[in-house]
Each structure stands twice: as C-alpha cells, then as structure tokens.
C-alpha cells in the first residue's frame, strides 16, 4: 500500500481562463520589472559617475539594440503592471467582479497595455 498520495497538479493540463492569464502575466511583469530595475539603477549610477560615463550610457541607449530592448522590455513590464494594478483598484470598487465583467476587465488590461507597448517602442527607437 502506497500511503504517499499523489496530487493532480500538472498545470499544463488545467484550463486557465483569460482572467487567470492576465493575473499570471501581472506577476510575471512584476518579476521582469524587478530584474529590469537592476539595469536602470546601473545605468543611472554609470551616468552620474562622470561626464564620460554619462556620454557612454547615452551612446549605449542610442545605439545598442540590446540595451534599447532591455529598456523597452522594462517599460512594457511597467506599463502592464500599472494597467493590471488599475484594474485591481477598479475591481476593489466592486466593478467588473462578474464572470463577464472579469472577462471585460481582462481584455481591457490586454488592449490598453498593448497600446502602451507600441508607444514605449516608439519612444525608445
């Protein structure tokens, strides 16, 4: 007799509704934001170190695709985290707590942040 009972928790087999996808992405964006902040702090520190350091960071952000991509990625994470957070505040006010309302809120979050992703890209490049 096997007393060690198994648990069915294979996440690849479990359906995640759109509200769940948006919530999961909210958490992921927080992690990306945390990691991206390390680059931003480094860039800030380097730009304040000396006139040469400032010029170096300026050049990096103007010409290096990887640096630009990191900045864009961090901005996207910030935008998504912000919009999803606003959705939470709206839900805390009792709006969009129904099945359909939750779905609408999820699509609202995705669409608004997609627009912000594009705007962030335009700003960076």
């Amino acid at each position: 007799m096997n007393n060690n009972r198994p648990v069915n928790l294979d996440l690849t087999t479990i359906w995640l509704p759109i509200t769940g996808v948006v919530s999961f992405a909210h958490r992921v964006s927080g992690i990306v934001l945390f990691i991206g902040a390390a680059f931003l702090v480094w860039a800030l520190d380097a730009s304040l170190s000396s006139a040469a350091g400032f010029a170096q960071v300026k050049q990096l952000l103007a010409e290096n695709f990887i640096a630009q991509f990191i900045v864009w990625g961090t901005l996207c994470a910030l935008a998504y985290h912000f919009v999803a957070g606003i959705k939470h505040l709206i839900m805390d006010a009792g709006i969009g707590e129904t099945k359909e309302g939750g779905k609408a809120g999820a699509y609202f979050t995705l669409i608004v942040s997609a627009v912000l992703f594009v705007l962030a890209g335009v700003w960076v490049w």
Partner: peptide, 16 residues
Amino acid sequence: GIMNCVNVCPKGLNPT
C-alpha cells in the same frame, strides 16, 4: 482576483 472560481462554478455563483 484570478477568478478561476467564478469561471468554473457549476451553480453560477460568484466567490470573487
């Protein structure tokens, strides 16, 4: 506020 509960409830109830 993941709302999986609302999406699966067989009685159409709203825990969220």
